[in-house]
Design a protein around this nucleic acid. Structure first.
Lengths: 173, 173
DNA sequence: CTGTAATTTCAGTAAAGACTGAAAAGACAG
DNA sequence: CTGTCTTTTCAGTCTTTACTGAAATTACAG
């Protein structure tokens, strides 16, 4: 299995972007590879194509499955597990956002709430801190709530909403 | 300079979150520290409070200034540079999003456009790749365009928009 | 069961990223 | 200028994270 020029370019860039957003480079590359692959790949093919150890692929695939963007598919007449990724990019985006919300935003909300409470208990000593942290908490809560709203829109409406461009302003104005 | 319990908790958490999003832990901690500090701090104070080398603080502050979320403020009767961060959290969020768009989304757009073009040049060989990459490109373009729209709303309208919760659905329905 | 293929685990190692301290450069009062 | 205070740079080191390969485990056909 050899990557074409275009695929290689994409896979490398995707890996790079991943690592800038706190996602392991190899994991992002595997994801990219599966995304452009016309058919499901098995772990050996992935390892060979990306020149990484078989065991590394195994761990990375498990991670991707944990994120919910890669799944095992059976291939007729093949004993090895084969893997694909979501073909619908919007679904993929939402799944990733959900996961990051759960893993990072929600814990931050919890910590901020605790901090604001504790700061208030300290009275005047922490008045300023309480103030600042509360502002941040409001922001995070607002964004989280908004995301929940958007998330619950039926898919076509969501896409329509994002595509509506300059009409957004009119709508609100 | 010793951190209070609340501040320490917040600073540590913020550092942790930063590193999950591809931002150096120390840099995020410095940002958090400045955010809760009632008055501007100089580099030595920061270094002492967070127990990191003075030189590290220097580099990190420079990075934060590059992101546009920390600035130097002169303090009367003080020779050393003092630093603060945006007090308006919304402004802070937008500045960070702008910067990440510029650094990560825009380059990705460029690469995807190139890839789609190159794939199309290959004709049938890369038909599938062209297809997949184009879908991704559409997604990124849509999101980028949408952000541009939202970004250009006057601040109060933007906040109102994010806070509007369940009315969003009605508005679109 | 037994043997073979496939996958996972994990201790050890390699690579990447972050940090330090010493030295250089810059700023500025006298 | 000169001397002092401040900031920056960067080579070397340390820490963290990622990766490998050998061994253990699992899956399953015969």
């Amino acid at each position: 299995m050899l990557l074409t020029d275009v695929s290689r370019k994409f896979v490398l860039h995707w890996g790079e972007m991943g690592s800038r957003w706190g996602i392991n480079r190899t994991i992002a590359q595997i994801h990219a590879l599966l995304y452009v692959s016309p058919e499901p790949l098995n772990a050996d093919q992935i390892a060979e194509t990306l020149s990484v150890a078989r065991s590394n692929v195994s761990m990375s695939l498990r991670e991707l499955q944990g994120w919910g963007i890669v799944q095992v598919v059976p291939v007729l007449g093949e004993r090895k597990d084969h893997f694909t990724t979501q073909q619908d990019v919007w679904e993929m985006l939402l799944v990733v956002l959900d996961e990051r919300k759960k893993r990072e935003l929600d814990p931050t909300l919890t910590v901020l709430r605790e901090c604001v409470m504790e700061a208030r208990e300290q009275g005047d000593t922490e008045k300023h801190t309480a103030q600042r942290l509360n502002e941040l908490l409001q922001l995070v809560e607002t964004c989280g709530g908004w995301y929940g709203q958007v998330r619950s829109l039926p898919r076509p409406m969501l896409v329509r909403f994002l595509k509506m461009g300059s009409r957004l302003r009119k709508l609100l104005g």
